[in-house]
């Protein structure tokens, strides 16, 4: 097991956003967390990445308790994040954005390997290396955000709403790239998605969050057959 989260209680501002969430991440899997707006998905991801401190509960990563650890330390342990809304550094070039992603990688050789791997995965970025990141399209910015996280040599990749603001075609492209990263490099992935349809399609297992609690978990193929899930999360999308 890669990560075990137990009984996590987290406040976000003055409200408690997570009420005792427990979940497990297996080595090499893509885990999706779906739920409605305000279900606590982003809070959960921000807690895992170290941006929020839990009130109580534990996060174990590779047998080590990392609860309340600083984000930059977690990056050094191999937990890299693609934040919600991409948040690339718009005034920095694409190359500089990628180099920032490798801030914790001190070995030059490894940095070069990661750089080559990232450009191999996202060939579109290659032509735009010297361009300011702010001039990229939404899809390219998302690729840059994923590429930037890959530059940190992750073992666990956290993705917050990767489909946000992207067209269905680009979204599909991003998700198939995430799958190939997972399959080829063995990088485990936790992805938080409002778009339940695509999340269930592209993940191994899924947790369903409702008002800060896990209400269902299981293999994605099983979860997407569940009548309650279809009713609550997939009903509208099947109309598209």
């Amino acid at each position: 097991m890669l990560m075990r989260i137990s009984h996590l209680y987290v406040r976000y501002g003055s409200v408690r956003a997570l009420h005792g969430v427990s979940l497990e991440v297996n080595e090499g899997e893509i885990l999706s967390i779906i739920g409605a707006n305000g279900a606590g998905k982003t809070t959960l991801l921000k807690t895992i990445s170290g941006l929020l401190r839990p009130e109580s509960g534990d996060i174990d990563y590779r047998g080590r308790n990392i609860t309340g650890e600083r984000p930059d330390r977690l990056v050094r342990m191999g937990i890299c994040t693609v934040p919600e809304g991409r948040r690339v550094f718009p005034n920095l070039s694409v190359k500089e954005n990628l180099e920032l992603g490798a801030y914790t990688v001190s070995r030059r050789r490894l940095r070069q390997q990661l750089f080559d791997l990232t450009l191999h995965t996202f060939p579109k970025l290659k032509e735009r290396l010297s361009q300011d990141a702010g001039t990229l399209s939404g899809g390219e910015q998302q690729m840059l955000a994923v590429g930037r996280a890959l530059m940190g040599n992750p073992q666990l990749l956290l993705l917050d709403e990767p489909s946000m603001g992207l067209s269905p075609i680009i979204t599909k492209e991003i998700f198939s790239l995430i799958r190939s990263i997972n399959a080829e490099k063995g990088i485990s992935v936790i992805l938080v998605e409002q778009n339940a349809h695509i999340a269930l399609e592209h993940s191994h297992r899924t947790y369903v969050l409702e008002t800060g609690r896990v209400v269902m978990e299981g293999l994605s193929d099983v979860v997407k057959q569940d009548p309650a899930v279809i009713e609550a999360y997939l009903g509208c999308e099947s109309l598209e």
């Binding site: 600083r70 990056v75 934040p83």
Partner: peptide, 21 residues
């Protein structure tokens, strides 16, 4: 220097890049 520029742009994301803020 790159870390300073990143930080001045977005402190939260800078920390997610492994920059010790």
């Amino acid at each position: 220097g790159r870390a300073m520029r990143a930080l001045s742009h977005d402190r939260e994301v800078a920390s997610l890049m492994g920059i010790p803020v």
